[in-house]
Design a protein around this nucleic acid. Sequence first.
DNA 1: CTACTTAGATGCAATCGACATCTAACTTAG
DNA 2: CTAAGTTAGATGTCGATTGCATCTAAGTAG
Lengths: 227, 227
Amino acid sequence: MAEFLSPLVTIDVVILTLREGHLQVLLMRRGAEPFAGSWALPGGYIHPEEDADLDAAARRVLHAKTGVRTPFMEQLQAFGDGQRDPRGWTATFAYFALVASDAMVLKEGANAEEVAWWQIKGKQVETPLAFDHARIVAAAVSRLRSKVEYTSLPAHLLPPKFTLPDLQKVYEQILGRQMDKSAFRKRMAEAAFLEPVTGEKRPASNRPAQLYRIKRGRGTIFFDRTI
Amino acid sequence: MAEFLSPLVTIDVVILTLREGHLQVLLMRRGAEPFAGSWALPGGYIHPEEDADLDAAARRVLHAKTGVRTPFMEQLQAFGDGQRDPRGWTATFAYFALVASDAMVLKEGANAEEVAWWQIKGKQVETPLAFDHARIVAAAVSRLRSKVEYTSLPAHLLPPKFTLPDLQKVYEQILGRQMDKSAFRKRMAEAAFLEPVTGEKRPASNRPAQLYRIKRGRGTIFFDRTI
DNA sequence: CTACTTAGATGCAATCGACATCTAACTTAG
DNA sequence: CTAAGTTAGATGTCGATTGCATCTAAGTAG
């Protein structure tokens, strides 16, 4: 059997957050060719000496580029073809992460690269992206919208303590539709992955809401039915 | 930025079918090292000249090994680490295909390789597999069981024309539980992805059932609720 | 102390689910 | 030719769930 030249492979991470009521994605402006000056997903190469596996490589890339260790990250999909990179046939292992927007401060210029949150309009950002990154962003947004329907994913977009109305608003903003308050509360209650934070509330000019946090050890919950 | 040696990447396909009432996976006995003599998933290398993208490469591998061209196939997940292959840090793009068992005839010895269907017990086959292929098979079975709950995937495991009771049996065999006949028929009816094949039935010593086929242009249907 | 706002609980009609039953259409035994 | 057996397909019932509206609670602001 003939051996073929292995394609060049990279890791790219789609980091999504919710800021000012809109989904946003973290992009970096590229300094090097190809696509120098274009906005692109944070990414890098696998370090065989350092990375135990793909997930570890993705966590390292994310932390190196943004300083963030995210509460939620999973493999999105691999993308590979002969067109996405002018240098030849390449493939990328795309990962998908969610962060609370106030959990991270952008380290502008940390490594002399420009970093920014870009708002998602539909499934895209309003600037051309390097490589096939526009397609990868779209896939991440699709994955998020789809999983939000039946999981507790949006809890990762909030700070550690939050109220049920906060959480419901996140669901509504991602899905773009209103949800029923009582049905929502019932789902969250029977999923039993939240616990009240005693005594604390949150002030406003109205009745304060109970604060909750995710129970220790609970990852993402899959609901029996759609939200 | 330092360039790192790109890991060796491969493509592996988990081809599942339903035979004699059980899920089965297509395996090949390896002729070459590493893992010579062990059973493994059909796989291969990316051919940059020949394969437009990852999906095309997976389709080529599938067709080369089985002769089947257009079943259901989607990317499963990428697996990569420093342990799975004794030769070093490698990664594989794992794909997941469903074929009707009578749609293919195994080409035993076509390329001097032994090919066989192995029954899935739980999420495994009862033989050790090469590399991390046992883990990949388990992931494919999990994906199948999960998607069967809310999609029309099982229709791809049947010949082009089939009856509703046939289809229900496939769901039941994959999920390992009985389903309600009337609820099942209602789901299929409102999903409106099947059309009756006129006049034809299927003989037995009882009332014959209506034959259906998937409407042209309908891929996999996602149901509103779980089956 | 009243108006206003949002949290959280409750009520109700329509729908859906699991489960049982009933009828239809065919083969086979006699 | 008829009765028994089997499976397809439709219908009925009842409790649970859903969508939608309403009601009460708890705060702030004037």
